[in-house]
Write a protein that binds this DNA or RNA. Sequence first.
DNA 1: TTAATACCTTCGTGTTACACGAAGGCAAGA
DNA 2: TCTTGCCTTCGTGTAACACGAAGGTATTAA
Lengths: 148, 148
Amino acid sequence: MYTVKEAAQITGLTEHAVRFYTDKGLVPSVQRNENNIRIFDGESINWLHGVKCLKQSGMPIDVIKMYIDLCIEGDSTIPQRYTLMMEHKEAALAKLEEAKLHVAHLEEKTALYQAILEHRILDTTNPANWDRIQHMHGDVFYKASRRV
Amino acid sequence: MYTVKEAAQITGLTEHAVRFYTDKGLVPSVQRNENNIRIFDGESINWLHGVKCLKQSGMPIDVIKMYIDLCIEGDSTIPQRYTLMMEHKEAALAKLEEAKLHVAHLEEKTALYQAILEHRILDTTNPANWDRIQHMHGDVFYKASRRV
DNA sequence: TTAATACCTTCGTGTTACACGAAGGCAAGA
DNA sequence: TCTTGCCTTCGTGTAACACGAAGGTATTAA
């Protein structure tokens, strides 16, 4: 049996977030004692872990809520839960692909800067070169940006 | 020479966003005509593309602003820009790794559901099985969530 | 000439998922 | 008794706009 503070410590959430989640109905098993204090048991902690985890993977709160309501409804909702999870997985995959593009893109950008700084392209520290490379910054900024 | 509407069409941004960016100083080359209308030339469009692109890769507006201000300052700021971009790249890499974890995690979750639905684990459609698998939903929810 | 269209401005609200603080109250332990 | 820790509601702020309204200006077509 844990308090808000303990639940927060265990799950790595803030106390604010723990209260927020419980109040939103994302922790079905949470109880209140006679002093109206939230009491978390092992199951509540599991739910919190689960919420955190779906949250981290980018699922919005209201969708998590839907999922949890389906869980509460029982095993008859397994097909719906499967569908929901599949859709979320597809979304996560799309994000992964995007993230790959971004990294590739930034790799290129930093490589360009590095080349400049290592004087493989131009000695930008030499004022004599400054007007030849006057618009370099624009190029560097622009070069990789057409792609995304 | 383009209007807000055209610039929005070309870059795939909304008119709101285009005005927002120009007003924030993220499009240095944008001008106003005698009627106070924003006039975008090719360079402005490039800046807009660049902003969109940094934006998409997760850079906050104020950091983009910093970067652009450095660009405007000229080539003497190339080292700072490099540092900034490297940091952003590291952040993007971290996000990529996270995204991989999330996908792996969701793969597992959906696989579990699939196994259930294909009756490889239990026939959940048969009411006779319902109390044996009463807490399955909790398990499914929880199983992969300890990890993240 | 008039009406429609497209641009401009500022203002204000809504969104998401909280963070953070304040005010005010209750209950248990030293 | 005092402190601590919990509770509540309220309100503000965040990021990056979306969206609409109100009110003004300028061009263009009928």
